[in-house]
């Protein structure tokens, strides 16, 4: 049973933004609700006024045009999973959507909800960070665009201001031949919260790295980019030695904790392993666009 709360149901974005600002900031946007409802039920969510975004159908889209990818904030995880365009253009994101929770939750959970919840174990975040995604935040006062890397500020802390909501996630389409990979490690194969996850986006020209992004989930208070590892790779030939060094640096970017799912040490170990594995896989060649993995069978 859920505690009592108020629910506003706007049908247009301006109406929604008006409701979010009018109530003096103690109102929260309610998208898929797959985190909010359990949190309300479990007493972890204190807000008692919500603006349902379910009526804002215009915010549910995926666009691939003019060298950019634009995803509406209310696009469900299942939309991403079902989209051939996402599979082709953002295979790591596609893999993370496939590994996300269970089927019914994927059908309800939204991309913005996953980002705005601010959990370091958010499955979609490492791929999105590795794609240099921007997020568009709207309020009654207007729009602002923020790099995703500056959106998640701490554990369940985001740059979202009172009265604001996310409307869009976008990123430049990576250069041809960019390999995008994702790997999630959970305590079971299906419907698991990640113990650690990693995403890599890598462009190679004759084995020389011209672009590198490495993002890790569940290793710090937020999903993190391994920027020193990325810098190390840039302009160099992707040798086994270099991969090893980059993996070490990536682990250094992690500041994991012990929790129910794993110890700090295990996360540091697997941060190295996953980064090394994904970089090696990238070095083996782009292969087909969907050469992403979520588990280790075979």
């Amino acid at each position: 049973m859920l505690p009592r709360f108020e629910l506003y149901q706007p049908t247009t974005l301006p109406e929604a933004l008006g409701m979010l600002s009018e109530t003096g900031g103690n109102v929260r946007p309610f998208a898929g609700g797959t985190n909010l409802i359990p949190d309300l039920r479990g007493g972890r969510e204190q807000a008692r006024k919500f603006v349902s975004l379910a009526g804002l159908d215009d915010l549910r889209f995926t666009r691939f045009a003019n060298g950019r990818v634009e995803i509406g904030s209310l696009t469900t995880v299942s939309d991403l999973h079902r989209s051939h365009e996402v599979l082709r253009n953002a295979p790591a994101l596609h893999a993370s959507a496939t590994a996300f929770a269970g089927h019914m939750v994927r059908c309800t959970a939204t991309i913005a909800g996953n980002i705005c919840y601010g959990s370091p174990s958010a499955d979609l975040l490492p791929p999105l960070l590795s794609l240099d995604a921007n997020v568009t935040l709207a309020s009654a006062a207007g729009l602002r665009i923020l790099p995703l890397s500056r959106f998640n500020l701490g554990y369940k802390q985001t740059a979202l201001k009172p009265g604001e909501m996310m409307t869009q996630i976008s990123w430049p389409q990576p250069a041809r031949g960019t390999v995008q990979l994702f790997y999630k490690l959970g305590l079971r194969k299906g419907d698991a919260i990640s113990v650690i996850s990693a995403a890599v986006s890598l462009t190679l020209k004759q084995m020389v790295c011209t672009h590198a992004r490495i993002a890790l989930g569940s290793v710090a208070a937020t999903v993190v980019r391994a920027e020193r590892a990325e810098a190390l790779l840039l302009g160099r030939e992707l040798t086994e030695k270099l991969i090893g060094e980059a993996a070490e640096l990536a682990a250094d970017a992690s500041a994991p904790i012990d929790d129910l799912r794993a110890s700090k040490e295990y996360r540091l170990h697997t941060a190295r392993v996953l980064v090394r594995r994904l970089l090696r896989q990238a070095a083996e060649g782009p292969g087909e666009a969907g050469s992403t993995r979520r588990s280790t069978e075979g």
């Binding site: 309610f30 609700g33 797959t34 409802i37 349902s52 379910a54 019914m104 059908c107 309800t108």
Partner: peptide, 10 residues
């Protein structure tokens, strides 16, 4: 969908 995660009003 999981009907437990779906608000009736929505």
């Amino acid at each position: 969908v999981d009907s437990c995660l779906t608000l009736a009003w929505i």
